[in-house]
């Protein structure tokens, strides 16, 4: 990170931080950097910024960096951080909210796999009412370019009767469509 003017950045991102507090119900300003979240995070090793650093970046208004981070995308929502935070901040909920905001802003950052996965997953539910696993696997592998991912599991799953070749369509698909249309309408 190069030189920055914190006062100016804070000013620019004040409104975003207010929205983040409102949507998540959590205030990153409460964090006093004890680093318990980072110490207990099972996926810290694969993140670009540890969770405690994300909290500090939010305090300093480094919104773009946070939204583009891999951390926000690869947080597994296990809530170990939330469980242990001495300031009672629901850090997992904050990560969740940040992920939704990044998705709505079309920020893919380093989370291409996640972006493809979530989009394919949600489309599958939109079309069928239930998840169509074969379709998800195909969409994921084509979208990410990892064409061979998990192809070793296809046959063992099929032999155990766990893979359905055709999708299962529920009767209330019109209701599901209404929910999706409404989500689009209200932008959430």
């Amino acid at each position: 990170m190069s030189k920055m003017n914190v006062t100016e950045i804070m000013d620019r991102n004040k409104e975003f931080l207010r929205e983040l507090r409102e949507e998540s119900g959590q205030d990153p300003g409460q964090c006093f950097q004890c680093m318990k979240c980072t110490g207990g995070c099972p996926f810290q090793f694969t993140m670009d910024y540890p969770p405690s650093q994300i909290m500090r970046m939010l305090q300093d208004g480094l919104v773009d960096e946070v939204l583009k981070s891999f951390t926000v995308q690869t947080c597994a929502t296990c809530a170990t951080c939330t469980t242990r935070c001495p300031r009672n901040i629901d850090i997992a909920k904050l990560m969740d909210t940040l992920r939704v905001i990044a998705y709505h802003r079309g920020i893919v950052g380093k989370g291409k796999n996640m972006h493809v996965f979530h989009t394919t997953f949600m489309n599958s539910v939109k079309n069928h009412g239930r998840l169509y696993e074969v379709g998800l696997a195909l969409g994921l592998n084509l979208g990410t370019g990892n064409l061979l991912q998990d192809t070793d599991l296809g046959l063992p799953m099929f032999l155990r009767g766990k893979l359905s070749i055709l999708p299962h369509n529920i009767k209330g698909r019109d209701e599901i469509k209404k929910l999706y249309d409404y989500a689009k309408k209200i932008g959430e």
């Binding site: 949507e23 929502t77 969740d96 992920r99 939704v100 998705y103 709505h104 996640m114 996965f117 979530h118 989009t119 997953f121 949600m122 539910v125 009412g129 239930r130 998840l131 529920i170 209330g172 599901i176 929910l179 409404y182 989500a183 209200i186 959430e188």
Partner: peptide, 14 residues
């Protein structure tokens, strides 16, 4: 119907 799993709460609050 599917509850949306981790994808719904990663992409749409509603």
């Amino acid at each position: 119907n599917c509850c949306g799993g981790s994808s719904a709460h990663s992409t749409s609050h509603f």
